[in-house]
Nucleic acid binder design. Sequence first.
RNA 1: GGGGGCGUAGUUCAGUUUGGUUAGAACGCCUGCCUGUCACGCAGGAGGUCGCCGGUUCGAGUCCGGUCGCUCCCGCCA
Length: 596
Amino acid sequence: MNDLLGSMKKSCTCGELEKKHVNKQVILMGWVQKRRDHGGVIFIDLRDRKGITQIVFNPEINKKIHTKAQSIRNEYVLGVIGKVVQRPDNMINSNMATGDIEVLVNELKILNTAETPVFQIEKNVETSESVRLKYRHLDLRRPRLQKNILTRHKVSMVVRDYLNKNGFVDIETPFLTKSTPEGARDYLVPSRINQGAFYALPQSPQLFKQLLMISGFEKYYQIVRCFRDEDLRADRQPEFTQIDMEMSFVNEDEIIEIAEGLIKQIFKKVLDINLELPFKRITYDESIARFGLDRPDMRFALELCDVSNIVKDAGLNVFSNVVKKGGIVKAINVKGHSTFTRKEIDEFTEFVSIYKAKGLAWIKVKQDGWQAPIAKFFTDEKKQALSNCLNMEVGDIVFFVAASAQIANEALGQLRNQLARHLNLVNKNVYKFVWVTHFPLLEYDKVEKRYQAFHHPFTSPLEEDLEKLETALLEVKAKTYDIVLNGTEIGGGSIRIHSKGLQEKVLNALGIDKQEAQNKFGFLLDALSSGAPPHGGIAFGFDRLVMLLCQEDSIRDVIAFPKTQKAACSLTDAPSKISSRKLQELGIKVSELLEE
RNA sequence: GGGGGCGUAGUUCAGUUUGGUUAGAACGCCUGCCUGUCACGCAGGAGGUCGCCGGUUCGAGUCCGGUCGCUCCCGCCA
């Protein structure tokens, strides 16, 4: 039988006692981190969220309590009353925050016993993720997740504080909402009252925050859950959190400025790092040209170079044929690494094949000339041109990918990051931000055979590109801005369309005719015609941001109760089957194929 | 939908290449001893459906087929 808490009240935490508290009577409560039973004296490390304090049971001081303490095991929950005493000089533990003192116990309550945990509640005891997820309540006791979750809390506080002070209003938006045709797959919720009809969980509060601007709130924010029914990744969960913002009467610069201020505050308050503002800005086109990706890691150079014009008639068919078909040849010069082995090059070749590159050509620049299978195809003149373009010097190795622009850029951009990892060029303690602006408004989906919004269908085109809406859709750039930190997109936004006419035009370009537009977005179009102010906003991936601040590799490690890659919760076993009665109530019949 | 990795004591792993006696180690756990430890120490002990199902074989942790789970990635994620 456990002891009752009664009127016992924690007087301090296990992390705060030091020399100046000596002789004080204290009441501590917490979990047993470790017991060391010497037959005579028993030491117990008592842990709470703030730290660990050594408590001592001495049979000479209190025989009865000492006897009781013999039954204590790891993770038991204790309440103790005792006196803070200074440790003898030679027994001070300098590795411990509270190592100067210990607490001599004169009253002990065993508030709860505990089964031996399936894994040790300690730092640096490796445990597989499946076990950690199944016993998440135990994993959350450990220092790593405690720290991450507290960091997450701190970020959230800083965000709220900053936005509140800047006049933003926290407004909740519905979770039970309308399915939209564009974008990710929706999570659906059946309606019992309207059988056969479904709500969708929001992929983001996009339209609601625009409506709030139309309602005149001018500055909105929310730290809000979003839902997308797509396959998971280390940085993608089916439910995730955004810092969502929207402002009226602003242009891109004002939103970027507010967002930069927010990031600066977070880094200052959470990591005590002073970021320099403003962050660098590059356009989407420049980002793709120089780094191959729309989320460049700016911690290292290794820029890409388009060599199509030089190699297209160099007599090397794999290059010239690609250029003839409208593709490109891009190259990356890895300075000073002509020492790459055959095996390393093979690995890089295999790496780019993930991104559909069919091969990876290379040239090693040696003292006595080029060493490369493709070298013989180049005339001296071409060699010189290539050398100049890529700044090739003795000791360098250059990699080439020839493919469609999309594949070549993606493959070489990914290779760029891979090379940086391989060569250890990335410093984990450096934080390089960059804004990537002016994304295309639309892209062409070859599978669906139609245009799709690159960002979302409510994004405003650049004013100077409005005419191209009629003539060259794919050349229209948009008023967008993504913020990228060390190669990870942590946020993005846009200026929205606030005129009904333009919105209809863009929907039309997306292949949504007037009738369909009215059905699906009628409420927005109506609102736009009711006096909508110019407005725009941004959303940050809260989990990703916290992940980077915690130097974790997966957002699962900054979410208290994450899902597995099959979108299941190991702790609760969700999702699970439901009774036929409940299904009936909802008017839902599960396909026979799925039933056993 | 596709490709890669992993699955052996409570936990982390070795053993699988080349099938062969009783499947090992560390940590944890249990018992006893121990009055100054803090990775306490000493002595002893318990603990395994080798993910699951099937096949090959005299014999399978090991080989083959299937399946489930975890994970990384491609596709997907406006």
